[in-house]
C-alpha cells in the first residue's frame, strides 16, 4: 500500500512535470511593465517587431515601446536622462557606443552572458555588436565599367558628380578617412584628409534620403556616393543602372550597429530578454536576408549567395578599414566646422 501511494505520488509528480514542460516557458511575468527601446525606423523597426517584440510581449506580458529616430536623438536622450533614464535600450553606431560606455550612460557588455559568447570575439566594443556593414561605393554603371576603387571617385571627369553624406556620422567620417589614406596619410591628418576630399567639389548633393540618392545615381545625375553596404544593397534592387562596390585599396570602412543597455534603466531584466532575442539567430538571420546587414552571432548560418554579399565573419572584418573612432569623436566638433567651410562651400 505504501508502495502504491508512493507510486501514485510519483505518477502525479510526473504528470505535473510533463504538463508544465509542454506549456510555453514563462521566463518571468512582466505584465504591466513597458520596455522603452530607441531604434531606427523602417525595415529595422519592422524586423524587430516581427522577430523580437512580438514574441517578447507574448512571453512576458510586457509592452515594448519604440522611440524611432536617428542616433543623435538617442544619444541626446540617454545623456540628458543620465541620472534618471526612461529608455532601456538604445541602438547606437560603432563610434558612439565606446564613448557612451566611457561616460557611464550604458552598461558594459557582460562576458559571462551567453549572448556575449555567441558574438564573434572582439566585437562588443562598448555595447553588444548587433550587425556588421561596411562603407562602400554606390555607382552608376554607365559611369564605371567595372566596380570602382576609391581613387576612381577622384577622376577629373567625375568632378562635381560625387555625392556625400552629412557630417558628422560614420559615412562622412569614413569617406574623410579614406580621402586621408588616398593622400598618403590617415584620419589623424585632418589637413591632408580635408584637402583631398575638397578635390571632389562641387558636391552635387549632401544626401539624407537614400531613395533620392539612388534615383539620382540611377539616371546618372550623381555618378557615385559612399554608402553603407546594407542600405545600398537592399535599396539598389529597385534600380537597374546601379552597382555597389566593396573597394580593396583601401578596404571598405567597417561600420557596426550596437545594441546598448542603458545604465540604471527602469527594466534591466526585460532589456536583457530583448537583447537575447535581438542578437539571437532568428533576428540576425532576418537582418542578413532582408537588410543585408552581416550577423555578429557566430551561430547564424546563411545561404552562400547571401553570405557573399555581406560582411559576416571575423576574417572579412580583418580586411576592412578600421578607424580610430575615439580620435574622430574627440575632433567631431572642430571637424564639423571644417566640413561646413571646406567641403560644403563651392
Amino acid at each position: 500500500m505504501k508502495y502504491g501511494l508512493n507510486g501514485i505520488a510519483s505518477l502525479g509528480l510526473c504528470a505535473v512535470m510533463a504538463a508544465t514542460s509542454l506549456t510555453p516557458v514563462l521566463a518571468q511575468d512582466f505584465t504591466g511593465q513597458t520596455l522603452v527601446v530607441g531604434v531606427w525606423g523602417g525595415d529595422i523597426e519592422r524586423l524587430l517587431r516581427e522577430n523580437v517584440i512580438g514574441p517578447l510581449e507574448a512571453e512576458t506580458g510586457a509592452k515594448v515601446e519604440l522611440l524611432l529616430g536617428g542616433t543623435g536623438d538617442r544619444v541626446a536622450k540617454i545623456y540628458a536622462e543620465k541620472d534618471n533614464p526612461t529608455m532601456d535600450i538604445a541602438f547606437l553606431n560603432i563610434f558612439e557606443a565606446p564613448q557612451a560606455l566611457a561616460d557611464g550612460v550604458v552598461v558594459a557588455p557582460d562576458p559571462e552572458l551567453q549572448i556575449f559568447k555567441d558574438i564573434w570575439p572582439d566585437m562588443n566594443n562598448g555595447c553588444y555588436a548587433m550587425s556588421l556593414a561596411a562603407l562602400g561605393i554606390v555607382y552608376n554603371k554607365d559611369a564605371f565599367a567595372t566596380p570602382p576603387e576609391w581613387a576612381a571617385l577622384w577622376a577629373p571627369e567625375l568632378k562635381g558628380k560625387i555625392a556625400l553624406p552629412a557630417f558628422p556620422g560614420s559615412e562622412a567620417n569614413g569617406i574623410l578617412a579614406i580621402a586621408g589614406r588616398l593622400a598618403g596619410a590617415d584620419e589623424h591628418d585632418a589637413d591632408a584628409s580635408f584637402a583631398k576630399l575638397a578635390e571632389l567639389k562641387p558636391i552635387p548633393l549632401t544626401y539624407s534620403n537614400l531613395d533620392e540618392l539612388l534615383s539620382l545615381v540611377d539616371i546618372g545625375e550623381v555618378a557615385a556616393a559612399p554608402v553603407i553596404s546594407g542600405y545600398a544593397i537592399a535599396g539598389m534592387k529597385n534600380y537597374e543602372n546601379i552597382g555597389f562596390a566593396f573597394p580593396t585599396d583601401p578596404g571598405p570602412v567597417l561600420t557596426r550597429d550596437m545594441l546598448c543597455l542603458v545604465a540604471n534603466s527602469p527594466s534591466p531584466e526585460l532589456a536583457l530578454l530583448f537583447a537575447e532575442k535581438a542578437l539571437g539567430v532568428v533576428n540576425q538571420t532576418a537582418y542578413a536576408n532582408e537588410l543585408y546587414f552581416g550577423p555578429t552571432n557566430s551561430n547564424v548560418k546563411l545561404d552562400p549567395e547571401i553570405s557573399a554579399m555581406l560582411i559576416d565573419s571575423p576574417e572579412e572584418v580583418s580586411t576592412l578599414t578600421q578607424l580610430d573612432w575615439p580620435f574622430l569623436i574627440e575632433n567631431r566638433s572642430a571637424w564639423t566646422d571644417r566640413w561646413n567651410a571646406e567641403i560644403l562651400v563651392d
Partner: peptide, 22 residues
C-alpha cells in the same frame, strides 16, 4: 538647402543633434 546652405538654424541643429554639443 540639402545640407549645403548653412543658416544659424541648421548650424544649431548640427551642433545639438549631430555633434551633441548642447
Amino acid at each position: 538647402g540639402q545640407g549645403k546652405v548653412q543658416t544659424f538654424g541648421t548650424v544649431m541643429y548640427q551642433q545639438s543633434a549631430l555633434v551633441n554639443d548642447w
